[in-house]
Design a protein around this nucleic acid. Sequence first.
DNA 1: CTGTATTTTCAGGTTAACCTGATCTTACAG
DNA 2: CTGTAAGATCAGGTTAACCTGAAAATACAG
Lengths: 225, 225
Amino acid sequence: MKHEPFNESIEMYLKTACELAVGDAPVAISALAGRLGVSAVSATEMVHRLQESGLVDHQPYKGITLTEDGRHQAAAVIRSHRLWECFLVDHLKLPWDEAHEWSCRLEHATDPQVTDALEVYLGYPLTCPHGSPIPTPDGTIVEPADQPLTTLLPGQSAVIARIYPETAELLSYLSDLGLTTGTRIILKERAPFHGPLVLLVGEDIRYLGGEGAAQIFINQVEDAS
Amino acid sequence: MKHEPFNESIEMYLKTACELAVGDAPVAISALAGRLGVSAVSATEMVHRLQESGLVDHQPYKGITLTEDGRHQAAAVIRSHRLWECFLVDHLKLPWDEAHEWSCRLEHATDPQVTDALEVYLGYPLTCPHGSPIPTPDGTIVEPADQPLTTLLPGQSAVIARIYPETAELLSYLSDLGLTTGTRIILKERAPFHGPLVLLVGEDIRYLGGEGAAQIFINQVEDAS
DNA sequence: CTGTATTTTCAGGTTAACCTGATCTTACAG
DNA sequence: CTGTAAGATCAGGTTAACCTGAAAATACAG
Ligand SMILES: [Mn+2]
Ligand SMILES: [Mn+2]
Ligand SMILES: [Mn+2]
Ligand SMILES: [Mn+2]
């Protein structure tokens, strides 16, 4: 009659570690703590616990790397998250930006068998609605071949391929600006020193701060007609 | 960046209280404790907390009743649970018996907006795959017009309308016997004093203990040809 | 090579849900 | 009307995740 508890904390730590990792460089505990909205002391405590469980490898003053086991579990959570996002947006027609937070709860409540069945039902989507790839059942994540919006030159056009990392605030903001995945944009102008970008979205002019631009990735770059 | 916690415990107490209530009779704390797999002391503690929050009304040595607020929240959880069951069984084609446990996790991770969208997507189903009614958004639950299998007389036939209350073990057992909702059965014989029933399911003879029979409800009663 | 900022550890504290064992209270059956 | 089983409380304890404040260790930039 008793089901196993939600391991929301553990799963969020693993997922976040996975998302913050670039290549095989260790992830700083402070980065983890920041992303999770938790004190550095708490994050360190939890990292120790994860180390005990063999999910994480911590070298002091450097950071952590996920073990094979840890990466596996992280991928499972991310997989479930992104598949739910597809379902919420494409099938339930729920808002593109809110789907992210809702999926962040569902991801911890989903049996692997449900995840797999969901993937079949959705027709094996390749990415979530925000452009990030869906991990395979065995835990591999193929890095997408997109480039940062910050590399686009004035006069060029491109299609928004991906928002990463995803945060509720940014998604909501971009949604309001019409800067969702799949949208073609033209870069009119860019202020120097990471200043705001001037973008043409359809007929509309949009101004976008440098911090936001750093989380947008594009492809199909062309010289604007 | 921080989302509110899962209130799994609280929600399970409310849901269970709602499911154990017959009419407006108070539910014994021991019954709650038993169903939730928790000690009586723990259940009492939690009931006090629920009372503080105004979700429950506890008269000592009698039992508890849900307040308006409490019943509302309970109905929301049950609603989400049963809608997920519909989705898992009808759309994802997952097993009828396992869907119950999987939904028991999802029910705590579902935003009301997701629940509502899911209901639309499913086409406003009236019952879950096990025959129990789906609460409306405002929290009302229409009691189905079925009768206990124990009222069926030898020689009569009927259709299984509902399993209630649902437990993983019973659902799995009934699934194996082919005694799922919508199945027409014929009662061949009944041993006295709540003894086993002899049922004809299609071509097959099935023996069913009295405890299981008490959790099966039927309709469309006819005299067998 | 040293100083400072980052990282870690230590100490001590909180909260929600659990637990066992023991001790009241009360409802109600006979 | 009373005894006893069922129900409630009390006492004391555990665990996972959090927290703050302060002290120690280390990396690395200049
Ligand atoms: Mn999450
Ligand atoms: Mn996404
Ligand atoms: Mn549940
Ligand atoms: Mn059901």
